[in-house]
């Protein structure tokens, strides 16, 4: 009995790599733009900020990546950190090559909750990907009536900052108050320096009518959360996007659970309140 690919979540949709660029100075991060090849796939592939895809290279395997592009764009953008077997192979892809994707999977950032509120985006390192999608999406959709944005984004050094061109554009927007920081003073860097948790502590972000979204390395999240709570943020006002080792992406293979929640299916976006009382397995 042949399987209908539409109903088989394990089958991949073919994509063409339309653009590849290095995202970081140390060449560990590459951004790829993908285009679905089949018309049918294109018409069915709808996503919202926060969701992820499984990127598949036959013979090598699959890895999950948060979607960095905004849904309005005609390409799917992912930024890939070269750390493992699959990401190594993805880094070898060139423009015009084929690969496969599955998805979109997972939940989205709490877009409805953000309506008529201030959105505070806190990020470190290359976890900025889906947050870039969120920012783009909210800026494009005026119906959300976001009252303003705070963007606190940090990286080890200027060369490790993602999407620099985009950041420049966001800086021009009056609605966005941005602090871009690097860990230590570096020649040529005139902006802020300091670690994200400290910057958050020093900043004037306030919890009134606000939603905070925080993504980054576990240690950054761990140190930043107390600062937010000190400032009076409630646990249901703070959201984070989690990363775990994944295989199926659809809540079947078992490994990415935190308590009764699967990061791939019930997440990756969780509020601090949802994670309370569950094993801190992230």
């Amino acid at each position: 009995m042949p399987l209908n690919p539409v109903n088989n979540p394990y089958l991949t949709m073919p994509v063409r790599i339309v653009k590849v660029s290095f995202e970081s100075e140390d060449r560990s991060l590459k951004t790829l733009e993908l285009q679905l090849i089949n018309e049918q796939d294109r018409s069915q592939f709808h996503y919202l900020p926060g969701q992820f895809i499984e990127f598949s290279i036959p013979g090598k395997g699959e890895s999950p990546f948060g979607i960095a592009s905004s849904p309005s764009e005609d390409v799917i953008r992912v930024t890939v950190n070269r750390t493992g077997y699959v990401t190594e192979s993805i880094h070898q892809l060139e423009e015009g090559d084929f690969a496969g994707i599955r998805g979109p999977f997972g939940n989205t950032y709490p877009l409805d909750l953000m309506k008529q509120k201030r959105v505070i985006i806190i990020s470190g390192g290359f976890a900025f990907t889906t947050l870039s999608s969120l920012l783009d999406y909210l800026l494009e959709h005026e119906e959300y009536n976001i009252t303003g944005y705070d963007l606190i984004y940090g990286a080890r050094n200027p060369g490790m900052l993602l999407y620099k061109d985009k950041i420049e554009c966001w800086k021009q927007q009056s609605k966005i108050k941005s602090i871009i920081t690097i860990d230590r003073e570096t020649p040529g860097w005139t902006g802020t320096t300091g670690f994200v948790p400290t910057i958050v502590e020093q900043s004037d972000i306030r919890p009134d009518q606000a939603i905070a979204v925080i993504c980054g390395p576990p240690i950054m999240i761990k140190l930043t959360l107390p600062k937010l709570l000190d400032k009076g943020f409630q646990k249901d006002q703070i959201f984070t996007s989690l990363e775990r080792r994944m295989k199926c992406g659809i809540g079947k293979c078992g490994r990415c659970n935190i308590g009764p929640n699967y990061v791939c299916k019930d997440g990756p976006v969780f509020s601090l309140q949802q994670l309370e009382g569950l094993p801190a397995e992230y």
Binding site: M1, L3, Y10, L11, P14, V15, P58, A99, G100
Partner: peptide
């Protein structure tokens, strides 16, 4: 087996015993 593939094409097939 979830599916078989050929490396040079993105075409994939799968079947299940009936």
């Amino acid at each position: 087996t979830l599916f078989f593939y050929r490396k040079d094409t993105p075409k994939e097939k799968a079947s299940i015993q009936e």
